[in-house]
Design a binder for these strands. Structure first.
Length: 492
RNA sequence: CGGGAUGUAGCGUAGCCCGGUUAUCGCGCCUGGUUUGGGACCAGGAGGUCGCAAGUUCGAAUCUUGCCAUCCCGACCA
């Protein structure tokens, strides 16, 4: 089997597609745009999910589960939200199949089983959740309501790519209700910060926190906050969003509460989500021409041990030594695999675990045992060295932290090198074509100019960074005055 | 959804234009043996609805039509 990857320089897109499949993260399925997440990919998602779930709970949220189907009448209640998602909805119209009278062994949709009201397969769950919240909220004492759900959603995308944009994907969606606007805005920002720390600390992907412009905003939101990451090909990827929904959904679903003065008020809402798309971000931010590079904190496997031996007796000696090392590693909470599969030789295994991005590889043979060492290889730097078996687990524990930091720093350096300022239209166009990356530039604040820039360059405003410094300038396209720079990029 | 390309064993492929016996080769897989410090070697073996369906024909991987899926470009995508 050919495991040779197309290089990033040769064809970045093909490199990504091959890598996802060859590293056994996911596969295409029989259904257009839908993927099968394979055990290795799912283990990664589980690690991400577990950590996020912990962080949600630490910030006071609880999990619940709402239905996959949304009755059309509920779906259309919040007009902007419905309009925004309408053209990518899968719709259930019937509930039964019958034998095809003209074609033995085949089934047809039973025309008699047509639903009175169509069911929309959720592209997002605001509608069904706010319809439910109506029954849960009467008093200010019921607030805040802080709920998250882990679910799948379906968006009928025309052009799909594994993890980055699939027709069905896994995600979490938080939906909260608050008594005041201030509290809801605070929640929106709080969850954006949770996302940013998760992505930076666990996935080792640096992100820019910002606010979307009106035209890039979530359908039905008053404000959309986002984290934006830069991929190795210089394109930006929206890695997570947190929305301040105002009272839009409360009004659409008539969710009111009595405040302390017995006055009826509409509640204030937020919603926030990250998806399996984060896996795409992880791959494209760190991996190289040899394969994946997994950040240790969420890597399904942190250490792999490859035994090297001659004959059965030789193997028994190596096995015994490996067993001790494995126990020590496990005692420190390190996820380790001992690959003593006799069908594959060491060289093959080395290449295989590089493809899969396992952060640390330990080779152990008689030669090492004689010297009381192992050969230890880092996936991120490909550096190999001999390390004493005494205190190995402690060494590896520290090394995993070092690797985590190294990967993050590397991605951060890349982003810094590929974030540039443009002060004129010519500079802007030149930078986009030559180097891609983020471009910080002045914009006059109008959707018209934003649209023109997009049409002419395919670059969009990724966000208005939250930590922006105020600075007087003129819009690169219209020449009108501007108070601050915004971040442009071509995006996934 | 529009334009282009592709689909032959688990993977990569030859054959297709110009229809004709048992569909080519490599990797992988199985059995036995020798091996094991960067993708091992020898011998033997198994594995195919040629994407799916209809049509043309004495005969279809090959020609025609429809459908499905994937990739690229575009439109679309909070």
């Amino acid at each position: 089997m050919s495991k040779e990857l197309t290089s990033r320089a040769e064809d970045y897109s093909q490199w990504y597609n091959e890598l996802v499949v060859k590293a056994a993260l996911a596969d295409h399925s029989a259904v257009r745009g839908c993927m099968v997440i394979k055990p290795y990919g799912y283990a990664l998602w589980e690690n991400m999910r577990d950590q996020l779930d912990k962080m949600f709970k630490e910030t006071g949220h609880v999990n619940a589960y709402f239905p996959l189907f949304v009755p059309k009448s509920l779906f259309e209640a919040e007009e902007k939200n419905a309009e925004g998602f309408a053209k990518e909805c899968a719709v259930v119209t019937h509930y039964r199949l019958i034998a095809d009278p003209e074609n033995k062994g085949k089934l047809i949709v039973d025309p008699a089983a047509k639903l009175e009201e169509e069911l929309i397969i959720r592209p997002t769950s605001e509608a069904i959740i706010w319809n439910t919240y109506k029954g849960w909220i009467q008093s200010y004492r019921d607030l805040p309501l802080l709920i998250n759900q882990w679910a799948n959603v379906v968006r009928w995308e025309m052009r799909t790519r594994l993890f980055l944009r699939t027709a069905e994907f896994l995600w979490q969606e938080g939906h909260t209700a608050h008594a005041t606007k201030e509290e809801a805005v605070e929640e929106t920002v709080k969850m954006l910060n949770v996302y940013a720390s998760f992505v930076e600390e666990y996935m080792a992907v640096p992100v820019i926190k910002g606010v979307k412009t009106a035209s890039e905003r979530f359908a039905g939101a008053e404000d959309t906050y986002c984290i934006e990451a830069l991929m190795q090909d210089g394109k930006a990827l929206q890695a997570g969003t947190s929305h301040f929904l105002g009272q839009n959904f409360a009004k659409a679903f008539d969710v009111k509460f009595s405040d302390k003065n017995n006055k009826l008020e509409y509640v204030w809402a937020t919603s926030w989500g990250v998806s399996t798309r984060l896996i795409g971000a992880l791959i494209m931010a760190h991996s190289d021409d040899q394969g994946l590079v997994m950040p240790p904190k969420i890597a399904p496997l942190q250490v792999v041990i490859v035994p090297i031996y001659k004959g059965e007796e030789g193997k028994a000696i190596v096995d015994a030594k490996a067993k001790i090392i494995i126990e020590e590693l496990k005692a420190l909470g390190i996820r380790v695999k001992y690959d003593d599969n006799d069908n594959a030789r060491p060289g093959w295994k080395f290449a295989e675990y590089e493809l899969k991005g396992v952060p640390v590889r330990i080779a152990l043979g008689q030669r090492d045992i004689d010297n009381n060492v192992v050969e230890l290889a880092r996936r991120d730097t490909k550096e190999k060295k001999s390390v004493s078996i005494d205190g190995l687990a402690v060494y590896v524990k520290a090394l995993l932290e070092e690797i985590q930091q190294y990967i993050f720093n590397k991605a951060l350096d890349f982003r810094t090198e590929n974030t540039r300022k443009a002060d004129t239209w010519d500079d802007f166009v030149k930078l986009l074509d030559e180097k891609a990356g983020f471009i910080s530039a002045h914009w006059d604040g109008t959707p018209e100019t934003e649209e023109k820039i997009k049409e002419q360059t395919k670059a969009t405003i990724r966000c208005i960074p939250l930590d922006n410094e105020m600075e007087d300038g003129v819009c690169i396209l219209s020449g009108k005055p501007s108070k601050q720079r915004v971040l442009f990029a071509r995006a996934y």
